[in-house]
Amino acid sequence: MTTRIEPDGSRPAIRFDRVGQVFNGSDGGSVTALEDVSFTLHRHEFVAVIGPSGCGKSTLLRIIAGLVKPTGGQAEIYGLPVTGPREEVGIVFQQPTLLPWLNVRDNVTFPMKHKHGRVTQAEKQRAAELLAMVGLEDFATRRPNELSGGMQQRVGIARALLHDPDILLMDEPFSALDALTRDEMSFELLRIWTERPKTVLFITHSIPEALLLADRILVMSARPGRVREIIDVGLARPRSMQTLSEPRFHEIANHIRAQVFRPAALA
């Protein structure tokens, strides 16, 4: 079941209260993916999660998406505990995950088709608007394999925005793209976010990407994944290429790098 509640600014969009996640391995052993993770995301805040591989970043996202049930603590969206997938959440995956047999337009409206069995005229109209917003209005009838990786991921973003979710979860969405496309997509995302403010949780491996995009950065430690530090970025918006050369940018980048590579024993 999906529920939708009216978001308001008074309650945090996402709240984690001492969330833990233990996976039981097939060999009888268990892996602690997350331990005692607590944080709060305010409405329309852009938060990046950064940490080494295997620190449970993706698990964290899956808990908010309602795809994984935490084994300890509680995750809440607008004050309600997450018990399953919720309508106010949209997800952009690492891979564009487009359906090769549908054209771009039908891929964008696929969530509606898949969920309700049909697509309304209003949703089709909205899909066209979103495609225009991500600069793909001329590609609506093309198949995904005719598009570049960056364009495919734009379709993935348009698809996640179709039902106008208040919360957007992004799981390393640009990590499969080349460095130049990646920068371009970051600015593109900032533009979209300014146009249609959302609460964004953005998982990434890249420190510059996190700094360029986010209001706050959640730095996580390696297994078991814990929140090591939450950093206020404090760089002025709108951000641009100049942001990358500001002294504060490098200062925080170095600080995060040190945090990420600091051995757990010293934490």
């Binding site: 079941m1 999906t2 899956r62 998406a65 309602g66 795809l67 399953g84 997938p85 959440v89 997800i91 995956f93 690492q94 891979q95 995950t97 359906l99 969530p111 898949h114 969920k115």
Partner: peptide, 14 residues
């Protein structure tokens, strides 16, 4: 079927 595709489906509650 790519696992991410199935996650997409499940996240939609289909």
């Amino acid at each position: 079927t790519p696992p991410a595709m199935l996650e997409l489906s499940r996240s939609l509650g289909a």
